[in-house]
C-alpha cells in the first residue's frame, strides 16, 4: 500500500488554507502521471519537490536539497571505513 519510492511533483492545485478547494498534486512516476490528494500533507509542496505517497494521499513533501543532504551523509559514512567507533 505504501509506495516507498518518492514521486516528483509536476503540478499543484488548490489552496493550502482552503479545505474546500481541490487539494491535488500531479506526480510523475516513470513517465506516467497521476493525481494524489494533499489533504494530509505536512508541508504544502511545490513543483519539483518529491512526495511520499500512501493509498493515494501524499504524506510528506521532500525537497530535493534535503534528499541530497541525506545522501552526502551516507557517502561520508561509507568512506569512513573502520574509524567509526571512538
Amino acid at each position: 500500500m505504501c509506495l516507498a519510492l518518492p514521486m516528483k511533483v509536476t503540478a499543484v492545485q488548490g489552496d493550502p488554507d482552503d479545505i474546500l478547494s481541490n487539494q491535488v498534486a500531479t506526480v510523475d512516476a516513470d513517465g506516467v502521471s497521476r493525481e494524489v490528494r494533499l489533504d494530509i500533507i505536512d508541508q504544502w509542496p511545490k513543483v519539483g519537490d518529491y512526495l511520499i505517497i500512501h493509498a493515494g494521499f501524499a504524506i510528506h513533501a521532500l525537497e530535493e536539497e534535503e534528499a541530497m543532504k541525506n545522501l552526502e551523509l551516507l557517502r561520508e559514512m561509507a568512506e569512513q571505513g573502520g574509524g567509526w567507533v571512538q
Binding site: P6, M7, D30, E64, M68, L71, M77, Q80, G81
Partner: peptide, 27 residues
C-alpha cells in the same frame, strides 16, 4: 526517480556493507 536510484548504487551500498562487516567484527 533520480534520487531514489542514488540510494541503491553499488558504489554507495558496497562500502556500507563492508563497514557493517567490520563493525560486527568489533562487536
Amino acid at each position: 526517480m533520480k534520487h531514489a536510484e542514488e540510494y541503491r548504487k553499488t558504489d554507495l551500498v558496497r562500502p556500507l556493507v563492508e563497514r557493517l562487516l567490520a563493525e560486527i567484527t568489533v562487536l
